[in-house]
């Protein structure tokens, strides 16, 4: 137990260790290089041992095994994590900005009455506190934030830190809680998987992505025409799916799919961090947006400050013409 330690919450989704965990461990390692503390990793599960070997980037892995942790539910998660934080008194608790993190981080901070910072992209120790850079207003702005109290709960944006390698072997500790966990008023019932049959956008080499700039559902036809011309598929950012214009299986981003195509054409997408998280590994990214300050241009290789509705048909026409020329010359 040390006030210079950094605690990471390992995230387990459907029995699998989520990638964000290794990113958090890397961020924690950078922080402890300054604080001189250890990197702790809490694993909340009914079978934490099976994940421990993947967490060698930590110094200590704290396993809490309890039947109530077999599937995610807020109350047992928060109760277990509260007990670990109280016992370990770290300077910071790093939790991913994920579906689970958006529940657990603020509930933990509230229950322990400790500070919380969301959207964290960079974290540094500073005297007795922390200096944090966070994304604000969908990433259009950044805020340098001072946290004067420890411990603090920091919700880290996925993709902010390169995943940690596993340099050694962490010490594994099985923790027994003071009292058995209770299920709480929110209980997991079942997983609902996406319906089969739709295009699997994670397997496409070319994706034509549309966002709010598409304006209305009828304009999706323009994106479909371009996708057909290029031999790809249409996907979208969250607002388009929220409108019911495309199914959730076409959504790219934090709560949708993570894609790695050869070409990602983003039309009328502002580039919120949640979207960029799902497409930043594409080999070539082209962004089209009328707002020259749109964050999507920071994630793209090429950009055009044009109306998506103008460029979509023009590009489809140009691509079709080029393919026609190529087939004639062949």
């Amino acid at each position: 137990m040390s006030a210079s330690d950094v605690l990471v919450l390992a995230e387990i989704q459907r029995g699998m260790l989520a990638d964000i965990t290794l990113e958090l461990l890397a961020a924690a390692r950078q922080l402890t290089a300054a604080t001189g503390g250890s990197v702790l990793c809490a694993v909340l599960s009914d079978d934490g041992q099976s994940h421990a070997s993947a967490l060698a980037a930590a110094d200590r892995v704290l396993l809490v095994n309890d039947p109530q942790l077999a599937a995610y539910a807020p109350e047992p998660y928060v109760a277990a994590l509260c007990e670990i934080v109280r016992a370990e008194q770290p300077c910071a608790v790093l939790i991913g900005g994920t579906s689970i993190g958006w529940d657990v981080a603020p509930l933990l901070a509230s229950r322990l009455d400790i500070p919380l910072v969301t959207g964290c992209r960079a974290i540094q120790a500073e005297g007795e506190g922390l200096a944090v850079t966070t994304a604000f207003c969908g990433g259009k702005l950044l805020a340098d934030v001072q946290v004067t109290a420890r411990p603090a709960v920091l919700m880290v944006l996925p993709g902010s830190c390169r995943a940690a390698a596993a340099p050694g072997r962490a010490q594994i500790e099985v923790r027994t809680l003071a009292a058995p966990l209770e299920s709480g008023a929110v209980r997991f019932q079942e997983w609902v998987l996406p319906a089969a049959g739709d295009v699997d956008i994670t397997q496409q080499d070319i994706l034509v992505a549309v966002g709010r700039g598409i304006q209305q559902q009828d304009n999706l036809a323009l994106a479909e025409e371009l996708a057909t011309a290029l031999g790809g598929a249409v996907c979208a950012s969250r607002p388009v799916v929220d409108q019911g214009w495309l199914p959730a299986t076409r959504q790219v981003g934090k709560s949708g799919m993570t894609v790695r195509p050869k070409l990602y054409l983003a039309f009328g997408i502002s580039g919120a961090p949640e979207h960029v998280e799902g497409m930043q590994s594409a080999e070539l990214i082209v962004a089209v947006n009328t707002d020259p300050k749109a964050p999507i241009f920071d994630a793209a290789h090429y950009g055009a400050e044009l109306d998506a509705l103008d460029l979509l048909p023009a590009l489809a026409e140009a691509a079709t013409a080029r393919k026609g020329e190529a087939s004639q010359s062949a």
Binding site: D144, I285, L306, L311
Partner: peptide, 28 residues
């Protein structure tokens, strides 16, 4: 007062996209 903003600013782009200029047909 445990969390205070010291500075709010537009991010400096580390790797800004190369902007293609010209008309719609030029860019296409």
């Amino acid at each position: 007062a445990r969390v205070t903003v010291r500075r709010l600013y537009a991010p400096a782009s580390a790797a800004r996209a190369e902007i293609l200029s010209g008309s719609v047909s030029d860019v296409a």
